[in-house]
């Protein structure tokens, strides 16, 4: 069992305890509401996981690696941001790739854009966001974060480069 699961289980138990103090029937009502939400979303979640799994094999890390390690100049932050968005997987999959790219000679600005692009533009996250919160939220979130990854790289260069 992962640490995240344990933390969430403890949070859920705390919530259930608080709910019990309000009304003894409420922990069950909350659990049922949560499980119903999960049941309703199950086909969507399965489809999202299918996309995540396929993305990992359709986009070989070596390809992304080649694009980024060979680029130079201002273009770095843009390529870094886009490459970050395309690198699939959670932190335990992606950070080893980022480290390899950084070690292969990508600069500070490119690396910061890479991580930031992965964090906010992530294509793999997109499927979960569309499935769970819906396209309207995704639209708003994308509009408001559109410039963040390249700006992060430029800031890193300006302040620390």
């Amino acid at each position: 069992m992962s640490i995240a699961t344990i933390i969430l289980a403890v949070l859920a138990l705390l919530m259930a305890g608080l709910a019990y103090r309000q009304d003894p029937a409420r922990p069950l009502a909350g659990t049922v509401a949560g499980l119903k939400m999960l049941w309703g979303m199950l086909p969507l979640l399965l489809a999202a996981f299918f996309v995540a799994g396929m993305l990992a094999v359709a986009l070989p890390p070596a390809l992304v690696h080649r694009w980024l390690a060979s680029s130079s100049g201002l273009l770095d932050v843009v390529i870094g941001s886009v490459a970050g968005a395309l690198i699939p997987g959670g932190p335990y999959v992606s950070f080893p790739i980022f480290a390899a790219i950084h070690d292969a000679g990508a600069g500070l600005a490119a690396t910061v854009s890479l991580v930031t692009g992965w964090a906010v533009w992530n294509v793999g996250l997109l499927s979960f966001e569309l499935a769970i919160v819906g396209p309207r939220f995704t639209l708003i979130r994308m509009v408001t974060t559109l410039l963040l990854p390249p700006v992060a790289g430029l800031l890193a260069h300006a302040l620390f480069g």
Binding site: L11, A12, M15, A16, A33, G34, L35
Partner: peptide, 11 residues
């Protein structure tokens, strides 16, 4: 996660 979300909703 979903149980926690459900509890947040009713709580």
């Amino acid at each position: 996660a979903f149980v926690l979300a459900g509890l947040i909703q009713v709580m």
